[in-house]
Design a protein around this nucleic acid. Structure first.
Lengths: 343, 343
DNA sequence: CTGTTAGCGCTTTCAC
DNA sequence: GTGAAAGCGCTAACAG
């Protein structure tokens, strides 16, 4: 049914107050000082506005101002706990700045990303938080060409100079790997996504560097999971890992970890004695796995805050320089990486 | 920095085509037939629009039409997997209908709910999907008074005749309880939220009815968790449960279940031999608990679809009658409810 | 100090 | 078949 809203408009207030709409607009936008409007009049306008429960029409404001105070957020999958939590923090942070948020999930598809971003722009978002996927370089460039404030989250694109907020993934993976080495593991492998996304290549590099630094270069071995066929690719990866007598694994994302945990449990592999593990991001699944997982924890709240702040700053001031934020992960030690014999 | 968009407008197309904006508007909205516009002209307009990559300005449309093709969704907490998954399905379903979605999290606060709904209306959403919390009756009524299409999700409010989509919670809890009884448990308790929300009271009632039907009325015992202090309230609940020598538990939500699983594990309680369990909603935590949890699975995708469909229908046709959808849960049997001795 | 007015981009009535 | 024009609610330049 049609939306018959009898909303109060500026005009209604102006009529009631016996002034023009401009005065009302000025007062309600806090510009009474710079327009030297009589306190008495301003007061009356405010009272009437409150009394009538005036709520500005966002569409009209948006049309007129070319700004909607809305942030578009495109993540891989809002139902993935990692992104769900990020989303929650983005929502909170945006709210604090007077912005509201549009979410959408790209499913790691560049084409979908392009469509979603386009939709959001047409809906009039002022800026975009984007978790870029493989192949979405063009979309990012387009956004930059159009001068839409943008911050990449979780990953960035090396060749393109945008704002971004992400984990210091090299360090995180380095720490995770060193931790395993410190715990006495030697044949340490990694299961990662076979994609050219920066967060992934950095995690791989961090792992490699750690192994090399510790003289375990010969033991480096990386298997790749495939987003489109998680179960199959992880099963293959784990099989190879076992054939190689790998002693421990760095699992490069929470999705990979969860998938692998199922397989590890099914196969009756004993963690950590037979296979040490460090994962990323945490979550209930990690906690309840029979040998609770050690993992790299990302400061999600801070990352969300930073992303929103960058955008808001950029929207408010015109002298926008690119900001690159790298947050540090925290290694949370549970039992999956600590051999019982060493306890 | 200011958003310098050089977007193509109807006028640009009209100029290029040498026609008026009205014709362009008609053609681009598929009304060329009813306005008997020359095919040739229509064709040219369409081509130019495509060539110029015309994208209508949503704010202008919204202002003019009073409709934004946007759905507002207020859930308890988008970072809760249950709502995150619902959100994902709502997003997908809305997209299929040409709508986009605004999410927000109420934290089960009636006041926040009121504010969020208000914000959304001011942002111009056409309709609302609401997971109502305790005390948000007034907000719901207001929405109805304003004639905003509304569907309550997950829970409904008994005294108020709105659209709603939720699980047949009585049946679900009934099934869960009967399953435990069938497995030989007798002293079966429940841990629920101490709130007057329909999904909760129904689950409690389903449990009660099952116990009564099976002649176990004397064994009925319900403990209450408190949303604001989950750990403490669940610890108290579990303590009481143990004191009472309860043999099995129906845990009324996934949040309650996760919290209780931590406590159960910490206390070294043996599931299912010492304590049988059935939960709600599933999730990775349930799967990885040392004795994987049996649970009632909700058809989230269908629920999301239904909610969106109801709204879209209601938005399109003016003859709107209330729709009440109750979906059936599925009892997924794992090991937490099946005594080893009976295996 | 305050009011008038134009116009953001779009739809739609009415006139030709 | 097509175009002119009003107006959705708001802002801001300009005039007084």
């Amino acid at each position: 049914m049609a939306n018959t809203r009898n909303r109060i408009s500026l005009k209604d207030i102006a009529n009631r107050a016996g002034v023009s709409t401009s005065l009302v607009s000025f007062v309600l936008n806090g510009k009474q000082k710079q327009h030297r409007i009589k306190d008495e009049v301003a007061q009356r306008i405010k009272e009437i506005a409150k009394e009538l429960n005036y709520k500005p029409n966002a569409a009209a404001k948006s049309l007129r101002n070319g700004r909607s105070r809305t942030i578009g957020v495109v993540v891989s999958d809002i139902s993935n706990p990692f992104f769900a939590h990020l989303a929650r923090h983005i929502e909170a942070s945006a709210e604090r700045h007077g912005y509201s948020v549009h979410f959408a999930s790209s499913d790691e598809s560049a084409q979908r990303t392009a469509v979603l971003v386009d939709n959001m722009l047409n809906k009039g978002v002022d800026c975009i938080v984007l978790v870029p996927c493989e192949g979405s370089d063009a979309t990012v460039k387009e956004l930059m060409d159009k001068n839409i404030p943008l911050v990449l989250l979780d990953r960035y694109i090396p060749g393109i100079n945008t704002n971004y907020v992400c984990l210091n993934n090299r360090q995180a993976a380095y720490d995770a790997t060193c931790h395993l080495i410190d715990e006495g593991f030697r044949r340490i492998g990694m299961i990662a996504y076979g994609v050219q996304l920066k967060h992934m290549t950095d995690r791989i590099e961090g792992y490699r560097t750690a192994m090399t630094d510790r003289g375990l270069e010969a033991e480096i071995s990386i298997e790749y999971a495939d987003h489109a066929s998680m179960q199959k690719s992880c099963e293959t990866a784990i099989r190879k890992v076992l054939e190689r007598n790998t002693e421990a694994l760095v699992l490069a994302t929470n999705t990979i970890a969860v998938e692998c945990l199922y397989i590890i449990r099914k196969r009756g592999i004993i963690v950590p004695d037979q296979l040490g593990i460090v994962g990323f991001d945490g979550g209930n699944a990690f906690e309840f796995f029979y040998s609770p997982l050690s993992y790299i924890q990302q400061p999600l709240e801070m990352m969300a805050q930073k992303a929103v702040e960058i955008l808001v700053e950029q929207l408010d001031s015109s002298d926008s320089f690119m900001q690159h934020v790298e947050t540090e992960g925290i290694l949370v030690k549970r039992s999956s990486s600590i051999r019982n014999s060493r306890k």
